[in-house]
Design a binder for these strands. Structure first.
Length: 596
RNA sequence: GGUCCUGUAGCUCAACUGGAUAGAGCAACUGCCUUCUAAGCAGUAGGUUCCAGGUUCGAGUCCUGGCAGGAUCACCA
């Protein structure tokens, strides 16, 4: 039982003993005391005045005295208006710290024996990854790690959109203009090379539309009848028919793209346990349509098209099969949901997909529940907001995207400049220095994208580079490096900072208590982050922890401290902070350096 | 137009799910490197939490109605 439960249980006891009133301890909640007041936990009296039949102040005094008398952990208390602020004893803090210090894997929960799949990234194979994909990938990867720490077995999956009209556009343009160009001959990364032809298609296509509208055609008709669009559509038909030349071309271009993606994923530091390809899954789901018709979940219209009626759930009717019997997006996603379950028997399934698809997933999940799927209640859409530029939305065809590879390279370059300016690479080999720039640049970028609540859309201004000071990745990395320096020194002077050495340090400083409180809170934050699928919870926590540690670092001496017990304790406390920072940053997919 | 999301300091974001005087970072200003890493610490200044009602001991948070921005409402994906 943790201290909060102990306190609320005792408060319930006080209500019984002092006011003859039974209260469920679980209905009582404590909150952290605001830092301008003395105390660790605060109990709000107002709701219980009917029970105490007294003023808030008098009730608080009575409850406080009762706690102090009955709980050795409670050292003092004070009452401000209707708030009972509870202070805990140094021995409580010391005991708590020793528990944390000796625990292995603080912040890791026991296995739940349950599987969850996290699908993220899910790129199109017609263009390189951009800033929006970075948010998606970092989110998906971090959420996977957080769920794993929380005790799930996690399967990271990537559903690659490798077919369809948009892929055919790149193929048509390449066929027309490519002249056998390859990544080797052009010096372009495979995904960038294919992306180039996607842009070329669009430019030519627009030109054709303009020519047609100028010759008097309606715009809608021009879009349909432009020669290259017709070619792309023909290409799609040939692809679906399995035409050998088309398939060869498709395989060649996609192969280049995958090589490019692999490089980008490696740089980002993300990976996958399972790839799904839409070229394999796009025909799935038709059997589910038949099943839904039988179960009365779907109905057929006169023209033969099949629909789900969700009007009772506050939505409208949604098409699940075209009149000609071909699939739509929804059909395929129903099939893929079943496939994931068949492959892994997952109990939860998380889709990391932008909020523009909120409606689609709401419908999909409702349908799967109505069909009685065993995993139906474990479906989650981790819906994140778009990353906007000051000029508005990114458009890949209009060249206003922030390319993922470019941005990562820029971040590393900025880290290099910054570090060299500060003259912090003394004693680094060339390789070590480059590795550090990578760690810092990517740390800054990942933290920047993960610290914001996923569902909020965020602004990225390419003119203003991502910060390295304040609430940033490098600030937290720096705190870790500082502690690493302390631990190196401790090793150098053979300082023993095992718990036995702490004996004799009886009156902790406020800054030390706060740190222990924060360290203890880590597992709560992992729990919360897992429940809310929000790495931002961890990011915010780490910033607060690092901030608190730097305060401690500035205020209290370590090696110039004369009492051995105090010195050992402060090194131990520092070590625990470093361990927690490393663990938490690890959950965000961010590496921390030993020196910087 | 219907539905969903968002609106907090000049800017970027918090606020433990209804609690105290709404907090950080950046930018600005003032201090602190002869002591463990100054990518740091301490401080000053900055607010009608979009607006109007309501619910109650108490509302940035919940409800209703507006306003603003975004997304979505294809036999596209």
């Amino acid at each position: 039982m943790d201290i909060q439960q102990t306190i609320t249980k005792t408060i319930a006891g006080a209500f019984r003993d002092l006011f003859d009133h039974a209260v469920d301890p679980d209905s009582l909640a404590l909150q952290p005391t605001r830092k301008e007041f003395e105390g660790t936990y605060t109990f709000v009296i107002f709701p219980f005045l009917k029970i105490t039949k007294s003023t808030p102040e008098a009730s608080g005094e009575k409850l406080g005295a009762y706690l102090q008398k009955n709980l050795p952990e409670v050292s003092t208390f004070n009452v401000v208006k209707g708030f009972l602020n509870i202070s805990l004893s140094s021995s409580y803090w010391m005991n708590l710290f020793q528990q944390l210090y000796e625990a292995k894997d603080h912040g890791r929960f026991p296995s739940k024996g349950k599987k969850v799949m996290v699908e993220y990234s899910s790129p199109n194979t017609n263009k390189p990854l951009h800033l929006g994909h970075l948010r998606n990938n970092f989110l998906g990867f971090a959420v996977s790690l957080i769920l794993e720490a929380y005790g799930y077995e996690v399967i990271k999956s990537n559903l690659v959109n490798d077919r369809g009209i948009h892929i055919c556009k790149s193929m048509v343009a390449y066929e027309k203009l490519g002249k056998g160009e390859t990544p080797e001959s052009s010096g372009l990364k495979g995904d960038h090379l294919v992306g180039k032809y996607y842009v070329l298609f669009d430019q030519e296509y627009k030109k054709q539309i303009r020519a047609l509208t100028e010759s008097g055609l309606e715009e809608a008709a021009a879009k349909k009848s432009a020669p290259w669009m017709k070619e792309a559509q023909d290409m799609l038909v040939r692809w679906e028919a399995g035409d050998a030349a088309t398939i060869d071309l498709w395989k060649k271009l996609n192969g280049w793209v995958y090589q490019g993606f692999e490089e980008t994923y490696r740089k980002m530091g993300v990976d996958f346990d399972q790839y799904y390809y839409e070229s394999d899954t796009y025909l799935l789901g038709k059997d589910i349509v038949a099943e839904g018709l039988k179960k009365g979940v779907f109905f057929k219209k006169e023209n033969g098209s099949v629909w789900a009626d969700l009007s009772e759930e506050g939505l409208d009717e949604k098409l699940v099969l075209r009149a000609d019997g071909t699939s739509v997006y929804m059909t395929q996603d129903m099939g893929t949901a079943d496939l994931k379950y068949k492959d892994h028997h997952i109990e939860k399934s998380v889709y990391v997909v932008g909020n523009e698809q909120d409606y689609h997933f709401e419908v999909l999940f409702k349908i799967m529940r109505k069909l009685g799927r065993p995993y139906g209640n474990g479906l989650y859409h981790l819906s994140y907001g778009m990353v906007d530029l000051p000029t508005g939305k990114m458009k890949s065809r209009e060249g206003t995207v922030v390319d993922a590879d470019d941005l990562m390279a820029e971040m590393v370059a900025t880290a290099r400049e910054h570090t060299q300016e500060l003259g912090k690479i003394e004693g680094f080999s060339q390789e070590e220095a480059e590795a550090l720039y990578e760690i810092l640049g990517l740390g800054a970028l990942k933290y920047f994208l993960l610290k914001v609540d996923p569902k909020k859309r965020m602004l990225f201004n390419p003119q203003e580079s991502i910060e390295f000071q304040g609430n940033t990745g490098p600030f937290i990395q720096y705190t870790h490096a500082r502690i690493a320096a302390i631990l190196r020194k401790a090793a150098q002077i053979d300082l023993d900072y095992s718990p036995a050495q702490f004996q004799g340090y009886a009156t902790l400083e406020k800054a030390e208590e706060s740190l222990i409180y924060q360290l203890d809170d880590y597992s709560n934050k992992v729990h919360l982050a897992a429940e809310e699928l929000s790495p931002a919870v961890i990011a915010q926590y780490l910033f607060d922890l690092a901030k608190e540690y730097n305060r401690f670092y500035a205020e209290l001496p370590i090696f110039s401290e004369t009492k051995a017990a105090v010195q050992a304790f402060r090194v131990g406390l520092s070590a625990q902070v470093a361990k927690t920072i490393k663990s938490g940053m690890g959950l965000l997919g961010i590496v921390v350096p030993q020196k910087m």
